[in-house]
Write a protein that binds this DNA or RNA. Structure first.
Lengths: 213, 213
DNA sequence: TGCATATTGTGAAATGAGTAACGCTGTGAT
DNA sequence: ATCACAGCGTTACTCATTTCACAATATGCA
């Protein structure tokens, strides 16, 4: 299916919210309810659910479990895939601690660091290898996704080595824009830029009209 | 000026790149050069620079310093603004370490944590206060921006207390969607969702045509 | 049973972001 | 001095995404 980036983003958020609702005992939702929770219009929600192939009923809404099922069919890898984390500083540890075990068919299979204090140890349940063994390790533990949390100066090289080892998607937290072959999907996360944006819009919003989201 | 979110994002990225070029001794760029570096069309770059009020010259391009100056006028707060960080775990420390001192007129003025092991100390140059003193502290150290890196269960409450204390922009790393009055600009960063998206597009791209970005 | 009502499903319109295209301008070569 | 040309500034257009609007439909109640 050819779907847009924003669509995947929303759908992932739907699933998180729907799981929460389900855990609280709710079994059905209306499009306008989910829309209000996500800050979207009901039409947007209906259209997305339609794209997913979900079908609701007037006066009962959508069955939450069924929607979660459809989203999982779309988002979750059909078979197990590995994640490699390059750089196990504070940020890397934070992500490991938070994300470990949260995905279906997607788990951390190796971490890499250049610091001998860290290598050879198990960090948050995942073995940490020295940087120079990356190619070797990735032969026996193939990974689909790489997460880069090394300093800017080491990011491009790390990315190229991951790509050469067969990684097809990279989340980059280092403050540089990675240059990689097009078949590798790269998501650059610029935390500095994030703060600049929020500071800007916080200011521009200060003088605007009040109200609630 | 009424500008779009994407515009601010691009402009922030331009500045980062232009500063790097400047530090390497380059003083002028063509729109197509900057575009290639950022993965954008030259038309997009020219249009953005036009919006910023920059003017270039055919056969010499744009003066990098002048563009940086214009971007800074737009993005940087006109006077000093404070940032508060709520939650000083791995993620909080990572952001503090990386972002401290990188902004013009924007600096960390307080951090908060509920762990008595951390409170009372100076972390990455910034004082850490106990959570319950937030209101009191923010009276003497007014802040414009808040960063939330607490667990999901504490995020909404933290956000409301920040908002009540006058914060006008929040970056939320906790995996919940914050519900706040509209005058507070909220940017939710969902790291789980990020990984799901990258995993999805990595898969969908695997069978596509090759080529370079 | 049949009506009233609230919500779904979806074509059509509106919005908005990005691209193409082209006249204009300044530079360097002849 | 004139010409050729490469890139800027800007307008018009294209295309994707979102919203509008309404017929279709399922439920509850009289």
């Amino acid at each position: 299916m050819e779907v847009s980036y924003r669509f995947v983003e929303r759908v992932s958020a739907y699933r998180r919210m729907l799981r929460k609702l389900l855990s609280e005992g709710t079994t059905r939702v209306y499009s306008y309810e989910l829309g209000a929770l996500e800050g979207l219009s009901s039409a947007q929600v209906r259209r997305d659910l339609m794209t997913l192939g979900c079908t609701g009923s007037p006066s009962k809404g959508y069955d939450i479990s069924a929607v979660i099922e459809k989203i999982s069919e779309l988002l979750d890898p059909p078979a197990g895939e590995g994640i490699a984390m390059v750089g196990v500083g504070h940020l890397g540890k934070a992500i490991l601690a938070y994300a470990t075990g949260r995905f279906a068919n997607l788990c951390f299979s190796a971490t890499f660091d250049s610091d001998p204090e860290k290598t050879g140890k198990i960090i948050h349940g995942c073995h940490c290898f020295p940087m120079q063994e990356m190619e070797e390790v990735l032969k026996t533990r193939p990974v689909a996704i790489g997460i880069i949390t090394v300093p800017a100066s080491a990011a491009q090289e790390s990315a190229e080595r991951l790509a050469a080892a067969g990684v097809r998607g990279i989340v980059n937290f280092a403050p540089v824009r990675l240059r990689l072959p097009r078949e590798v999907f790269v998501e650059d996360v610029d935390i500095t830029g994030l703060l600049e944006k929020v500071a800007f819009f916080a200011r521009s919003r200060t003088q605007e009209g009040e109200g609630w989201t």
